[in-house]
Design a protein around this nucleic acid. Structure first.
Lengths: 197, 197
DNA sequence: TGTACATCAGTGAACGCGCGTTCACTGATGTAC
DNA sequence: TGTACATCAGTGAACGCGCGTTCACTGATGTAC
């Protein structure tokens, strides 16, 4: 390990370097267990023990990575939605961006939604780090169909999108229709939005 | 390892015992990598090397388990569909059974649809062991909406169900609506079937 | 201005664990003579 | 009917690997005197 150490008082730099390394790992083809402490340290150019300088254990490291990933996903989806005025267009853009994030960042998406790393950490749903993402989806659906049914309708939009993303990845040999078409079909069927063409 | 050996000429019994052991393991709470060769051997009450008496390597073992699981899933869904005469009722029963299988057998379902164990074994879709399951879904959808759009419509029904199953498992803290309600909403929106109530 | 010292970032060495896989071996049993 | 032998089911011992984690240590640098 020949590595220039961070200057005194800048120990936090390694913390960030570790998180950056984790995100870099999540870009690569997915392994079963998406993150290992040793792999993160290796990617960061540091010895495994050094992780403990900043995280109590592996779980704490993963939790921190999860928060970063949720923030990235939310930012990407919001950015896409912002560029539209109409409620239906905003919802459509948000959903498309959600799916595209999942397909472009399979490692991050898998960590957020396909492991027990989140959602089973002794938290209720409302205090989980992903609750903000879902709240945003509910608001966008509500703007289209009114508030009566929005929460439930949004939950089925979410599951439908999640299925679209994850099956495309685990079954790459299947003759999938174009992503836009499938998302439009979902929004048309579940929210009554007619897709653009 | 104090185990009564199988009688001469009955070596195949161990092969089945190994597969049974694998299925038993898949009943348990899910670990990341759903099946390890050593865990299967342990569950079968046998030393790890004994697996090689019947399978070339771990991949061959997993492939055999996958085939069994697909057969079980298909049988469960077919049994549910058979008890109805109307095309819409049959589709609804089949889909509900699919989801219920996924929720009741999370280990098996994860092996089939959430790992690269299937679908990425150098096979095209049509020769993959799960193609028969999908073909059945297409036929049921076709009976409801005609043949023009059935393949694509079925693919979105499939992804929607997959999302329903997998998110319920990874996000148990979310306030999910009842399974029937969500499945009905999907079939109503995507196939035009009005759920029973 | 010089020096002793506390603080801090990071490493070396080691632990026990489960993993997939290889090779040599054991010991019971059906079969050929 | 008895016995030698080939076949077969299964194990013992060991390999190198990656994992998470612990404990003692190094060595540079800012700070107090």
């Amino acid at each position: 390990m020949t590595r220039v150490r961070n200057p005194r008082g800048h120990g936090q730099l390694l913390r960030d370097a570790l998180l950056d390394a984790a995100l870099r790992l999540l870009l690569k083809p997915i392994t079963e267990e998406p993150l290992s402490l040793r792999a993160v340290a290796r990617e960061a150019g540091v010895v495994p023990q050094s992780v403990y300088l900043h995280f109590a254990d592996k779980e704490a490291l993963v939790r921190a990575v999860v928060e970063r990933c949720f923030a990235e996903l939310l930012r990407a989806a919001e950015a896409a939605a912002e560029s539209h005025g109409d409620a239906a267009d905003r919802l459509r853009a948000w959903c498309l961006a959600y799916c595209q994030f999942g397909l472009a960042q399979p490692g991050q998406y898998a960590l957020l939604f396909e492991t027990r790393a989140t959602g089973q950490m002794g938290l209720t749903f409302s205090e989980s780090p992903g609750a903000a993402v879902y709240a945003r989806l509910v608001a966008l659906v509500e703007a289209c169909i009114g508030d009566g049914d929005a929460f439930d309708a949004a939950s089925t939009v979410w599951t439908a999108q999640h299925g679209i993303v994850t099956l495309r990845r685990t079954k790459p040999g299947f003759p999938w229709p174009p992503l836009e078409r499938q998302v439009d079909r979902v929004l048309n069927g579940l929210v009554g939005i007619s897709g653009e063409f």
